[in-house]
Design a protein around this nucleic acid. Sequence first.
DNA 1: CTCGTGACGGGGG
DNA 2: TCCCCCGCCACGA
Length: 124
Amino acid sequence: MNRDHPSYRHKVYEIVRQIPSGRVMTYGQIAEILGEGYTARTVGYVMHAAGDENVPWQRVINAKGGSSTGKVTVPVNLQQRLLEEEGVKFSEKGFCDLERYRWYPEGFEAADDDETATLFGDAD
DNA sequence: CTCGTGACGGGGG
DNA sequence: TCCCCCGCCACGA
């Protein structure tokens, strides 16, 4: 089956498809992993057709832990509702705890920032 | 070809 | 603390 070349968008979908139920990722996080020409803005942009690609689009939220779907064709609270069905708790303002639900693909776990204090100091 | 938009993010006031 | 502005890059007119 000839499949299209891994499109710009498809790389985003590949990652989103790996997000387990009850977990989330942010647009910026995905952009950071893909690197090369990807930004939070463009990642969000390609998500327009995510529902058409059988991708769990509801698991991608903004850096504040909420949904930015205000301007899109989907109901504003649909994303939040779907996530709550998966067990994600949201505050009254519509934000969830990213520290608690954020998911990292294998090989992209968050690194500790403590080491930054050890390096640097006398060089330069 | 150029201009403007947008499911974002971070810094400054 | 919240709100506003700028930067980021793909895509349509």
